[in-house]
């Protein structure tokens, strides 16, 4: 059987979590030539509501395209943390925004708290790049793709005018995790 690694990006609609998942899948499938499937589910409303995007990465063809037991889950809102953390694998990871997920769910998984949205808002001056901060943090936490592959995928996705901002956002997320975990 092939090695299957499952990631979930969850939060509210409009936070760019589907985009974060697409960028990660691009890094894995196109830049690193791994197998990857990105899928999503969301409510009919354009903003608000719980939203999630899942990425499966594997060294072989992927059959079931949705998460079964999640290796690493990101939650940017309390609602998403409560709703989507139930299928985290034993010994897995839950990354939460420490300012917006005041009561992280408890379970047989490691919880990592990071001020993701406030890093985007205060350090980078744009809350809108919180998804890219989160992506950098998830790459640092999981090692599912190389640091440079994630950065290259970010730069492929964003318009040139926002390349520098997003590069900073990605690396801020990555470095914060590395600093936190020593």
């Amino acid at each position: 059987m092939s090695r299957r690694y499952e990631l979930r990006f969850s939060g509210a609609g409009g936070q760019g979590l589907i985009t974060a998942g697409i960028i990660l899948a691009e890094a894995a499938a196109i830049i690193e030539n791994q197998y990857a499937v990105q899928s999503q589910s969301y409510g009919p409303e354009a903003r608000g509501g719980a939203s999630k995007s899942e990425v499966i990465v594997s060294d072989g063809p992927i059959d079931y395209p949705k998460a079964t037991l999640v290796d690493a889950c990101l939650a940017l809102t309390q609602e998403a943390a409560d709703k989507y953390s139930d299928t985290i694998k034993s010994g897995g990871l839950l990354l939460v925004d420490e300012d917006f997920v005041k009561a992280p769910p408890q379970g047989d998984f490691k919880v990592v708290r990071l001020p993701i949205i406030n890093t985007a808002k205060n350090d980078l001056g744009r809350a809108i790049v919180a998804n890219v901060v989160a992506l950098g943090a998830m790459v640092a936490l999981t090692g599912v793709v190389r640091r440079e592959s994630g950065e290259e995928a970010v730069l492929r996705k964003v318009p040139a005018a926002f390349a520098e901002l997003n590069k900073k956002a990605y690396n801020a997320g990555y470095d914060r995790v590395k600093a936190l975990l020593g």
Partner: peptide, 9 residues
Amino acid sequence: EINGHMRER
């Protein structure tokens, strides 16, 4: 909706 919206290489 799943294979219509999912992304693969």
